[in-house]
Design a binder for these strands. Structure first.
Lengths: 223, 223
DNA sequence: ACTTGTATTATAGTATTACTATACTTGCAG
DNA sequence: CTGCAAGTATAGTAATACTATAATACAAGT
């Protein structure tokens, strides 16, 4: 019996994570990685924080990159599920697309939970560290292991909505990827590199969503 | 007398780089960083490759992040100069914007040189490793040191062209950032995560530019 | 009750990384 | 010919990212 609604690739972890120890590694790991960043994060520090040992953590994950990729998968799996769920009640594809954009901008119900995680914590991690999941020399072998499938699936889902709005769009997938990427990098910019965006003034996710919805409306409207 | 047309922040390096040693560090460093990636790159390996010593390299740069940020600055400084130069011959802001988009997509004259570097090498590095310049816990202090100014300046320049095309655009800066970011992340996607974009089929920078020009035309056209 | 296996811990050790310190040499500039 | 900056040689340190081995604890199956 699976403990979660949606599970990441079992190949990411070396051992079943539903145990008490697995649970603590995942929850404390997320908190610590968010606090100190991937570079400073070590399994030793995580073990100390948990009152356990480095070796124990190594029995669950081969290295910290795999742990990051685990969170990366949970986040995108959950987001895609959430988007598809919300879309069921909407007949108009443009409304569905706008709903998806709000979701990728982090606008979701209070108290939402992504499996056992707080989706705000996952989102923060994915914004700050997520691209390190694939920006390295092993990207091609990791991709063959399908580690980025949940991310691609969400982009494909959004591309589907774009197509539904504008069947003749030639770059629906590229545009969906644009929306997803910018939902994250503009949020990073508005907190750390404010000169890059007008959104820094209010630092409001709703404004971020409004920009991307406007962009989507313009993209989908013509022709 | 400055050796370069455009120089990065002098605070990035610990010592003047115009010497023979400085030149070799910069050129071999770029090649090695592109070959093995930032994580595997060390000053020791660079020194071995150059037939010099680790300590010598440490006399030029405090750490490899600073060296990366140096290349990051050179790239954006050169690109902005190139864009502004090309724009001088064009009266129509939309044509200037389209020219800028081609430039950020890596379409520039054969044999172009960015200071002493091959801009294709710089572009490859910035695509694969560039975001590690700012995706870390020191981003705010590095930003106070103005290390990201050349990047922001190019985005601001492009935002100016967007404004010129569409004076009432509310998110010109956010949109300029969107263009610049996607010129890089879609190029990465088309080589390593092909499911994310239609551009993977031909892997052609011109098609990438065509997508972004189309996006810009749609963004600028309305209202 | 006894065995087997799995999970966790304890302890140790290694190669590499990311530096820092000190002192020596060499070449050139004043 | 003297001084100073650049480069080299050598050494050393704390931390990282693991791997290996063995001991313990506990739970399930026979």
């Amino acid at each position: 019996m699976p403990r979660y609604l949606i599970d990441p690739d079992p190949g990411l972890a070396l051992r079943d994570l539903s145990s008490a120890m697995g649970t603590r590694i995942l929850s404390e790991g997320l908190a610590l990685m968010n606090e100190i960043g991937l570079e400073a994060f070590t399994f030793k520090k995580l073990a100390e924080r948990m009152g356990s040992t480095e070796v124990t953590v190594y029995h669950y994950f081969a290295n910290k990159q795999r742990l990051l990729q685990y969170y990366f998968q949970v986040y995108w799996l959950w987001l895609a599920t959430h988007c598809k769920q919300e879309g069921r009640n909407l007949a108009d594809p443009l409304e569905r697309l706008q709903g998806d954009i709000k979701a990728i901008c982090g606008i979701w119900p209070e108290n939402a939970r992504a499996n056992r995680f707080d989706p705000d914590d996952l989102r923060a991690l994915v914004i700050n560290e997520g691209s390190k999941s694939f920006l390295h020399k092993n990207v091609d072998s990791d991709n063959e292991l399908k580690l980025f499938k949940p991310y691609k699936d969400l982009c494909a889902h959004i591309a589907g909505e774009v197509k539904a709005c504008s069947p003749r769009a030639k770059h629906a997938r590229s545009f969906a990827t644009t929306l997803v990427e910018m939902a994250h990098s503009l949020e990073f910019a508005m907190h750390h590199l404010p000169a890059l965006t007008e959104l820094s003034e209010k630092k409001d996710r709703k404004q971020l969503a409004a920009y991307l919805i406007d962009l989507a409306n313009r993209y989908v409207a013509q022709k």
